[in-house]
């Protein structure tokens, strides 16, 4: 265990150093534009897995948390001209509160009812923002970027690095949960909620915790998007595509281990970035749909499952 932790943190430091070096060495801004989006999806997919994968509660409200992150940042910029770290931290707090609320309201529901309830929440929040004039209403709002901080020479590069930091934070938290008794408790309640309760697992408390952490991370991932696009409108900030993309990424990678959503987000995120440039955004959605269907039908345990399949003893069974 100990040795693995050292390896993990070493890997994290190397990753961040590489990302930082990239921002200093690469002149062209485009890789950072695309990379930012992929990193953002890594955070979202990893955060989603805490509740959707470990606990088995399929959250379709990723867009609600993401959008709330975006609009928390918008509001802070518009009202106080708050700096980026404050935007992200506040978004995380708001996201965790929203997670708590969502959890209290919906976590007693099972299966598809929970999923539908999360879609409903997203639409209700979006509608409220649409009717909130101060942040631009339905038409959206333009934002001015403040001057960039050294050592970065462009704002997008800085955002890219910030998102890389969020990736490390999200993965570290998710990994911590997975390796702790909280993770075991979540798995137990996913397998059988009543049996878990009767074995001493405080299921409601664990689910709330998962919802709060997951929500905080998702909102934090959304906060820098306002400055990334220099624009926000409810329609795109709360787009259902976020929910389905993130779900697809987690399922494609596999949800048994934190590496699953990371792989899934990189795989699908990179494919989408490539397609958006080379063909069109519609094909993007098509690829999303096809990949989702293909993986849930043919590889229910995702990429992780495909890799782990070999050593299973009962040969050839699904």
């Amino acid at each position: 265990m100990q040795r693995r932790s050292i390896a993990f943190w070493l890997g994290a430091v190397v990753f961040l150093a590489a990302m930082l070096a990239m921002t200093q060495l690469v002149r062209n801004e485009y890789p950072f534009f695309a990379g930012y989006v992929i990193l953002q999806f890594v955070v979202l997919a990893v955060a989603w897995t805490i509740l959707g994968g470990y606990a088995g509660y399929v959250n379709f409200g990723t867009n609600a948390f993401f959008g709330v992150g975006v609009y928390t940042a918008v509001l802070l910029v518009k009202a106080f001209g708050a700096p980026l770290p404050v935007q992200i931290a506040t978004a995380a707090v708001v996201g965790s509160l929203l997670g708590l609320g969502v959890g209290l309201l919906t976590l007693r529901m099972r299966g598809i009812f929970f999923s539908i309830a999360t879609i409903a929440l997203a639409i209700i929040i979006e509608t409220s923002i649409t009717n909130f004039r101060f942040v631009g209403g339905a038409a959206g709002i333009q934002l001015q970027r403040p001057p960039v901080t050294a050592p970065f020479d462009s704002y997008v590069k800085m955002l890219f690095f910030v998102q890389a930091l969020l990736v490390v934070i999200a993965v570290a938290i998710t990994r911590g949960i997975q390796n702790s008794r909280i993770g075991r408790g979540l798995h137990a309640l996913r397998d059988d909620e009543l049996a878990a309760e009767c074995t001493g697992v405080p299921t409601l408390r664990l689910k709330l915790l998962a919802c709060v952490i997951s929500g905080a991370l998702m909102a934090a991932a959304g906060a820098p998007a306002a400055m990334y696009l220099q624009y926000a409108n409810p329609d795109s900030a709360f787009n259902l595509n976020y929910s389905v993309s993130v779900l697809a990424m987690a399922l494609i990678g596999g949800t048994a281990h934190w590496i699953g959503p990371v792989l899934g987000a990189i795989l699908l995120g990179a494919t989408q970035q490539l397609l958006a440039v080379t063909i069109s955004s519609e094909v993007n959605v098509l690829v999303l749909g096809v990949m989702l269907v293909l993986f849930v039908v043919a590889a229910p345990k995702g990429v992780i499952g495909l890799v782990q399949r070999q050593p299973k003893r009962r040969g050839g069974s699904k």
Partner: peptide, 30 residues
């Protein structure tokens, strides 16, 4: 459960994604 009431089920309800040892670990963890 924490106060000392434990039970089995008429139709067994194991944690299916886990090994036997892990099933017990859930109990011991909590």
């Amino acid at each position: 459960s924490r106060r000392g009431i434990a039970r089995s089920f008429q139709i067994p309800r194991p944690f299916r994604s886990m090994t036997v040892l892990e099933n017990l670990m859930v109990a011991l963890d909590f």
